[in-house]
Design a protein around this nucleic acid. Structure first.
Length: 192
DNA sequence: CGGCAGATACGCT
DNA sequence: GCGTATCTGCCGT
């Protein structure tokens, strides 16, 4: 794996999450590929009561305790999948939730997976992007250096382009400023 | 465009 | 049993 990317992924999720903004996910579909840019992330760590890893390793959270650079996919609300990138050293339960992405190439491949009324609706939420990228539990634990989904680094964004806020949709530890998004990007899920 | 209810099933106590 | 790292549609401005 790219050494710069490996360095980002080795960080504590509070630092890895903003560093992953701008990085790309490449999703292969039958020899064709779609490329998306990560525009919104959240940090989760075992020290944090809102994290699936907080109460120790379980069948669901097992992937979070593995090595960095793997995909952690979970199912929630009876119908939705969300995907995370595992960070930090193996044995530590930490990951970065991908909350929104911007399609860069192969948008038509994503549109096959998800019907929408507007362009931003395709990928401007964690469950939406999983549907568009066709990510489900079968990809839990997938190595992101390999197809059919891989992660590519980007140059770090200037601090002026990164907005830091409270996380969304949680009740515990709701005051932590562990959500990060690219300023003025139209695909960010919720701007206040 | 903003707020709210309903859908729906799995992990964990 | 119960709560959930969400989305959608439907209602009101």
């Amino acid at each position: 794996m790219d050494s710069y990317l490996a360095k980002i992924l080795s960080l504590h999720p509070e630092r890895a999450a903003p560093a992953l903004l701008g990085c790309r996910l490449i999703r292969h579909f039958d020899g064709q590929k779609a490329i998306v840019k990560i525009v919104e992330t959240e940090s989760y760590h075992e020290s944090d009561a809102a994290s699936h890893s907080h109460k120790g390793q379980t069948k669901r959270s097992k992937t979070m305790f593995g090595p960095a650079g793997y995909l952690y996919v979970y199912f929630t609300y009876g119908m939705h999948y969300c995907c995370n990138i595992v960070t930090g050293p193996a044995g530590e339960g930490s990951a970065v939730l991908i909350r929104a992405v911007e399609p860069i190439a192969g948008t038509e491949l994503l549109e096959r997976n998800r019907v929408t009324k507007s362009a931003v609706d395709l990928t401007n939420g964690p469950a939406k992007l999983c549907q568009a990228l066709n990510i489900d539990l079968a990809l839990n634990g997938h190595d992101l250096s390999q197809p059919p989904i891989s992660l590519e680094p980007a140059r770090p964004l200037p601090a002026s382009k990164i907005v830091t806020t409270k996380r969304i949709g949680i009740t515990k530890e709701a005051d932590k400023l562990w959500r990060f998004y690219i300023k003025d990007n139209p695909f960010v899920s919720r701007t206040k």
